[in-house]
C-alpha cells in the first residue's frame, strides 16, 4: 500500500468535524472575554457566600482565563483539523 493510499484509508475512519465549529469561531474572541468575566462573577458570588473575599474572586478569575484560553485553543484546533482534511482530500496529481 502506498503512502497516499494509507493516508486515504486513515481518513475514511476519522469523523469530519461538524460545521458547528465554524459558527462557534465567530464568537471565539468574545467567548474568551466572557469566560474571564464569568470567572470573576462566579468567584465574587462564592466569596459573597462564604465571606472569603478575595480568594475565590482571584482563583476563579484565573480559572476563567485558563478555561477561556483552552476553549479558544480547542476551537482553533478543530479548524486546523478541517484544513488538514481538505488538503488530504485533494487528489494526488503525481
Amino acid at each position: 500500500m502506498t503512502e497516499s493510499n494509507q493516508k486515504n484509508s486513515r481518513h475514511k475512519h476519522t469523523i469530519a468535524p461538524s460545521p458547528v465549529a465554524n459558527y462557534l469561531l465567530i464568537g471565539a474572541g468574545s467567548m474568551f472575554t466572557a469566560t474571564v468575566i464569568a470567572g470573576f462573577i462566579v468567584g465574587y458570588a462564592l466569596d459573597y457566600l462564604f465571606d472569603t473575599m478575595p480568594i475565590f474572586f482571584l482563583a476563579c478569575g484565573v480559572l476563567g482565563f485558563i478555561g477561556g484560553a483552552q476553549k479558544v485553543r480547542l476551537l482553533t484546533k478543530r479548524l486546523d483539523q478541517q484544513a488538514t482534511q481538505k488538503t488530504e482530500d485533494k487528489p494526488n496529481v503525481e
Binding site: M31, A34, T35, I37, A38, V42, G67
Partner: peptide, 27 residues
C-alpha cells in the same frame, strides 16, 4: 475538562464555562 482527579476544579471550571455562554451572547 480535567478528568476524575480534579472534581472540585472541574465543577467550578464547567460552571464558569456555562455562565460565559449567555454572558458572551449578551455582551
Amino acid at each position: 475538562p480535567f478528568g476524575k482527579f480534579f472534581i472540585p476544579v472541574n465543577i467550578i471550571m464547567t460552571f464558569i464555562e456555562e455562565v460565559s455562554k449567555p454572558l458572551s451572547l449578551a455582551l
